[in-house]
Design a protein around this nucleic acid. Structure first.
Lengths: 201, 201
DNA sequence: TATAGTTCTTAACTTAGGTTAAGATAAAAG
DNA sequence: CTTTTATCTTAACCTAAGTTAAGAACTATA
């Protein structure tokens, strides 16, 4: 029984947003299917219509957009978080960004068709979707705010504080892209910081 | 009759998003009330719960956030556009930003109570709200994208191209803040651009 | 195992933009 | 009408970050 629970942690998480009864939980769990993605694989392609939402069980995902020949990291998604190409998934219009696996990933996938089936059977599912949507909006709002109010160094420190393990699993180049600077600039920031720490000893 | 139509252009605009019948249009129009705001007045205060949405009939609004002692312009809202403090209005949580009148403004206000009444009588109102919400998200997504992919000069040119009249009605300082740079830097960009134009003659 | 491709660091140079300050208009307030 | 305040420009100086390049360390693959 406990193994089923741990297997369906995404359902429990959703139920915390807007409570579901046991039947609904079971039904929602059955609508999801588990998928594995190898590092660097593209899960959702920019410019296409997003057909699924994901719940990240293990690993790290990235949201990226291509602009000419350059690729920019719009955000990282860490474990136990939903990955949604918004608003492409809802409006069925081409998405502004891709979703890629930064590390090997393990996700729960909910297709658009299953989402529609779920909505008919589980009234609270719409509320859950709406709240997740709002979280996404708050996320980019915060990101935009820190972009114009903080220096690259402060943004880096903020990121490392929130996700200390990031340095082990994400390349410097991708972190730099996330911060809106070049890899050279981030390397400089890192050495500047370590020198500053060394001074205090 | 035509005067009524022009008076209710906001209702017609909404009906274009998800069509409403004449009865619904009339009802929706009656739920709005017209308001005038003097230049520099604060319509919605950062940190409070947003109680209304607005439709801007005339003038220019700004979305701003205060960060310590500094104020940052998050966006401008031009005529014939909705102004929504999202997600504060829906979730009834403190808002991340204020809405202010950059010039004298003329708006249609729809209070939260009237919005709830409207939802019960006009099924499509929820769809309209959802689509407007999505437009808001796309807007910040674009803004974020141009922030990390373009230079301040390109962002300035982009803004002026989309809103040529902006220079007459919005102060250099506010435009600079919108672009994420100082007023001195924008003044420099302007003189650089005018010298470049002069060279071509 | 050797070779080629990444990843990261460091240095040198350049440029955009921040900071401060001073002067010129223009607008608001007395 | 005068004084004060806000707006804008320009200059001087400084720093953060872009660009290019070269070398080290690690990975992947033939």
């Amino acid at each position: 029984m406990s193994s089923i629970k741990s297997k369906n942690s995404h359902v429990d998480r959703m139920s915390k947003i807007a409570s579901l009864n046991e039947q609904e939980k079971f039904f929602l769990g059955a609508l999801h299917c588990r998928k594995q993605y190898k590092k660097k694989s593209v899960i959702d392609q920019q410019g296409t219509i997003s057909k699924s939402v994901y719940y990240l069980n293990k690993g790290i995902l990235s949201m990226e957009y291509q602009h000419g020949s350059k690729v920019f990291v719009r955000d990282f998604i860490f474990r136990d978080s939903p990955a949604l190409v918004y608003p492409s998934f809802y409006l069925e219009e081409p998405s502004r960004y891709s979703i890629k696996a930064v590390t090997d990933c393990d996700v729960w996938e909910l297709t658009k068709e299953n989402f529609e089936i779920g909505k008919r059977k589980i009234p609270n599912l719409e509320i859950i979707a709406f709240k997740i949507t709002n979280l996404f909006h708050q996320n980019i709002e915060k990101r935009f705010e820190s972009m114009i109010t903080k220096s690259a160094e402060d943004r880096y420190l903020e990121l490392v504080e929130n996700h200390p393990k990031i340095i082990q699993s994400i390349s410097l180049k991708m972190i730099a892209s996330y911060l809106g600077i070049t890899d050279v600039a981030l390397s400089r920031i890192r050495s500047r910081l370590s020198k500053r720490v060394a001074k205090n000893y």
